[in-house]
Design a protein around this nucleic acid. Structure first.
Length: 582
RNA sequence: GCCGGUGUGGCUCAAUGGUAGAGCGAUCCCUUCGUAAGGGAUAGGUUAGAGGUUCAAGUCCUCUCAUCGGCUCCA
């Protein structure tokens, strides 16, 4: 969170931006201009005028010009009528004024230089000096009040810092961050491929990317098995009726691929796995003694994401979830939820991810949900009980519930600060009823189970994208597609190099050899750029000692080692899933 | 889907409306080297696609597609 001073600085700069825009394009309608995490924005309705980044120099010049006359911000309280009058031609401001007034809030105008605006306050004292170090960053569309039913406004993003040095530092960091963009690294490290020829949002994992995914999947299967999950396989298509029963068809139809007709029946490419797992639950009579029953599957689902929403691996049209459905009794929900949460925390820790927050998704009055208030309240009570028992910090978010129940999501940031929903735990009191799931209780009577839908990593595609950026391509050895690269000094050493490779391969170490007739320096440089974990250099000395000279990715010379010593060390490192130290 | 931007060899980028180039990479040859780039040669393009304007289009216009930054939506 930003401190108040920085917020005030940035919000003040939004005023300055609006002032410049109003002078340059007087017919523009102003809306709102808040400070945000790394800067500020202001949303305008430019009506017929098109604004692009080419206009920034002009706007920035005007801002500097205006700033000279800004000695301070002067606030005054105004009556509703006066406020409405001042914005008689601006429906956006009028809407805000009406709302604030109805809400019983005081209405205030703040003036700096010749520029005055409706504003609740929070500015710097000496704008003329304080606001000097700003920069406009980008222009984007944004719906009025965040609803796609409203008109799209033009949003101008910018940032401002107390000093030029801090601004430069920020811009430099942003540039650095772009170097770890998974789209760039994914291409450079040969991890995956997105090509127009296959189709937008359809990802091909190349051999190296596939190794990473397989390692992640192995981890998931192993850890879930320990935790009492049973793994299943289910098909990629199924009768449309299944998702009509679940309610997905009614609410999510526009996110599904068109049904296909097979033998006069409608089938869907699965947009989620729930119905299949429920069929497995339902396939035999269940006793309370079997619960909780945890059915898991690493399964790919397909969703039609709108074209403008796709982004590298982070937003694709096939999502491979580390999915599971836990069927349990209502009395077991809290413990099961906590079990899932602990497992999810374990995974995040294994990958060294700590830049995330938890979001509790609740109903909002605006949207459609299954069930009634009473059932929802029970579900929400259980999830909150579990969260409080764990003492978790979270943010509440109305409108982010699943249509069948409340959920807790893990939100992780990517290299350039964008937030992505990853892991999710959802409590569902609805679907068991829709599918007619039951079990026999202690008294021989039937009861409905409660479901927990959970995907601790979210999707392996998105998660891999996050990991690439998190590690900047420097994967821990256990995940690294190439763990050791053998670099023979000259062709004379090829035979020995190959024998070393065989020995390492026999120990299940992922190893490559650079047989090109290049200098050692060039081979080291290339191996370094490929971000292999270790380089094993072999020449006359090593042949004589039956050893290898080891160089770590970070550049450190680890000296000459016996092959057996090296393999046992690296196997310990892999076994412990050690995180990179660099 | 919406607002704005961008599409030129595998990658990064050049080319006042007038013969599409460079570096890296790739391939082949030479070199046989001790901790971040040895040398030479060769290949590689219907400038995203389709229309249009023009004597002439990579360059101007229209549409489509993809992609980037956002918005919305979401794992």
């Amino acid at each position: 969170m930003e401190d108040n001073n920085l917020d005030n600085l940035r919000h003040s700069c939004a005023h300055l931006l609006a002032a410049a825009v109003m002078e340059l394009w007087p017919k523009t309608l102003r809306t709102i201009g808040p400070s945000i995490e790394n800067g500020f924005y202001y949303d305008f309705d430019f009506e017929e005028v098109k604004i692009s980044e080419e206009d920034f120099p002009k706007i920035e010049d005007k801002m500097h010009e205006i700033l000279n006359s800004w000695e301070g911000f002067v606030g005054r309280e105004v009556l509703k009528e006066e406020a409405l009058n001042a914005y008689s031609d601006n429906d956006y401001k009028k809407e805000l004024i009406e709302e604030f007034a109805d809400d019983g809030q005081k209405l205030t105008f703040y003036k700096s230089g010749n520029y005055e605006d409706l504003c609740r306050g929070g500015h710097v004292e000496n704008p003329k000096e304080a606001l000097k170090n700003f920069k406009l960053l980008s222009v984007a569309g944004a719906y009025w009040r965040g609803s796609e039913k409203n008109k799209m406004l033009t949003r101008i993003y910018g940032t401002v810092f107390p000093s030029q040095e801090e601004l430069d530092e920020y811009l430099k960091n942003q540039d650095e961050a772009k170097k770890r963009d998974h789209r760039k690294l994914g291409r450079e490290l040969n991890l995956y491929l997105l090509t127009d020829e296959v189709g937008p949002g359809l990802l091909l994992l190349k051999p190296k990317g596939s190794i990473i995914r397989r390692e992640i999947e192995n981890l998931i299967i192993t850890e879930q098995t320990k935790r009492g999950y049973q793994h299943v396989y289910t098909p990629h298509i199924g009768r449309k009726k299944l998702w009509e029963t679940s309610g997905h068809w009614d609410l999510y139809r526009d996110k599904m691929y068109a049904p296909m007709k097979i033998d006069d029946e409608q089938y869907l490419v699965k947009p989620m796995n729930c119905p299949f797992h429920m069929m497995i639950y339902k396939s035999q009579p269940r006793s309370y003694r079997e619960l909780p029953l945890r059915i898991a599957e690493i399964a790919t689902v397909y969703r039609y994401e709108k074209p403008g929403e796709l982004s590298g691996m982070l937003r694709v049209r096939h999502i491979t979830q580390d999915d599971a459905h836990i069927f349990c009794r209502e009395s077991q929900v809290v413990d099961e939820f906590i079990g899932v949460f602990d497992y999810m925390s374990f995974l995040l820790k294994v990958f060294g991810l700590n830049n995330f927050y938890l979001r509790l998704g609740l109903r909002s009055p605006k949207e459609k949900y299954l069930g009634n208030d009473e059932v929802w309240k029970r579900a929400e009570d259980e999830i909150v009980k579990a969260i409080e028992k764990k003492g978790l910090k979270y943010t509440k978010s109305e409108g982010d519930a699943a249509f069948y129940g409340p959920k807790l999501d893990v939100i992780i940031k990517d290299a350039i600060g964008r937030e992505w929903q990853c892991g999710t735990i959802q409590v569902d009191f609805m679907l068991a009823d829709r599918f007619g799931l039951e079990y026999i209780n202690e008294e021989g009577k039937t009861e409905r189970p409660v479901l927990i839908h959970r995907a601790p990593l979210g999707s392996t595609e998105r998660f891999m994208g996050i990991l690439i950026e998190h590690f900047a391509g420097n994967f821990p050895t256990w995940l690294n597609p190439v763990q050791v690269k053998i670099l023979p000094i000259s062709e004379k050493h090829l035979e020995y190099a190959r024998s070393v490779m065989e020995k390492l391969k026999n120990e299940n170490i992922r190893v490559e050899i650079d047989e090109r007739s290049e200098t050692l320096g060039a081979k080291i440089r290339d191996a370094q750029m490929e971000k292999v974990s270790y380089m094993a250099i072999v020449g006359d000395k090593e042949i004589e000692n039956q050893s290898i000279s080891v160089r770590a990715r970070a550049g450190k010379d680890l000296g000459s080692q016996k092959i057996e010593d090296f393999t046992s060390n690296i196997k310990v490192e892999i076994g412990e899933k050690k995180l990179p130290q660099e």
